[in-house]
């Protein structure tokens, strides 16, 4: 009876978004009279950072400070259409729509500024700090605030833009069943190190080390936050969580947080993550997505590490002590 260490590897090829009857997202951008910008979006922020990333994308495209952009995801009934925050699609699909809307709004902003400065809109640029200026002659400038004021009160114009991103429906080839549901894939490789107690069947995850290739990381801290949280969730899926009873009796099934097991803060192992940035051709500034794949690689990596440690293959989640002990018994012919 002893504790055995093992190491397991998993690699992931993850589709960004989905495609049943086409996968669209839309965004609307408009300037307020004070020269702040609002992005209306139905892609809901559930803590993953949709609003932060939207702000960054709109500010970058418009050429204004990120503080001057506000994101309104208040109501999916009245906002521009989005398929939703799922399938790791938010940054990729909605992000592209936000960029398109911001580009159109910027064009109107430059046109109004050009009228005020009596120059060609093509000769204008934004300085990223709240000014529109003549290229090569930054002293000839007007603040974004003043442009918005003139647009609203003098020229009767709406500084606004519409954005649409659609991955069109992909028909199934009747001969082969083939289709192309997505336009880009993210990738990862993870190594899990575990310790398995062959007397109790208990598994302790000692470390998770991973490299993630996710296109451009638009916000590195948010990416790392999701990957660390996702690693925890992956451990939880692998070793703890199930709505089914651990024993074959419905009465033993979990009904609350006392019995629906998840790892606590003391069960979390060190997680080391490296990001590889290979911009996606059709991603917003090269971004892919990081939503769901953060929780998947720990599961096969831990299963492989258990096999490496004690030589048993557990093929059903979660990898509970009962399943490991039964498999060890079967292996020993008991």
């Amino acid at each position: 009876m002893a504790k055995h260490r093992g190491r397991g590897v998993a690699s992931v090829n993850y589709p960004i978004g989905m495609n049943l009857g086409g996968d669209p997202s839309q965004a609307l951008v408009h300037a307020t009279p004070t020269g702040k910008f609002v992005v209306a979006l139905s892609s809901i922020d559930l803590g993953q950072g949709m609003k932060s990333v939207t702000r960054q994308l709109a500010a970058e495209t418009l050429g204004v400070p990120v503080e001057d952009v506000f994101v309104d995801t208040a109501d999916s009934d009245t906002g521009p259409h989005c398929m939703g925050s799922f399938a790791s699609r938010g940054t990729h699909r909605a992000g592209n729509a936000v960029i398109a809307a911001a580009k159109e709004a910027k064009q109107v902003l430059l046109e109004v500024a050009a009228e005020e400065l009596e120059v060609d809109p093509k000769d204008l640029e934004l300085d990223g700090r709240g000014k529109v200026q003549v290229k090569g002659a930054p002293s000839r400038a007007i603040s974004v605030r003043d442009v918005a004021q003139r647009a609203h009160f003098k020229r009767g114009k709406s500084i606004s833009g519409r954005g649409m991103f659609l991955v069109p429906p992909s028909d199934v080839d009747p001969e082969t069943g083939e289709m192309n549901p997505v336009t880009t894939y993210a990738h990862a490789c993870m190594v899990a190190e575990v310790e398995v107690d062959d007397e109790t069947g208990e598994v302790t995850v000692l470390s998770l080390k991973a490299a993630y290739e996710i296109g451009r990381a638009l916000n590195v801290k948010l990416v790392e936050q999701q990957l660390v949280g996702g690693a925890w969730m992956g451990i939880s899926h692998a070793l703890y969580e199930t709505p089914e009873p651990y024993y074959p009796d419905r009465a033993h099934g979990p009904i609350d947080f006392n019995e629906y097991l998840m790892p606590g803060p003391a069960d979390m192992c060190p997680v080391q993550i490296d990001l590889l940035e290979r911009p996606a051709l059709d991603g917003p500034y090269g971004a892919k997505g990081i939503g769901e794949m953060c929780a998947t690689p720990p599961i096969p990596a831990i299963a492989n590490a258990i096999f490496d440690a004690v030589g048993v293959r557990i093929t059903e989640m979660p990898f509970t002590p009962e399943k490991i002990l039964k498999a060890l018994d079967a292996k020993r012919g008991r």
Partner: peptide, 17 residues
Amino acid sequence: VIEAIAGNVCRCTGYTP
């Protein structure tokens, strides 16, 4: 610290942060 938050469930962060 771990002991102090052991009764608080978090579904997103993985607790480490």
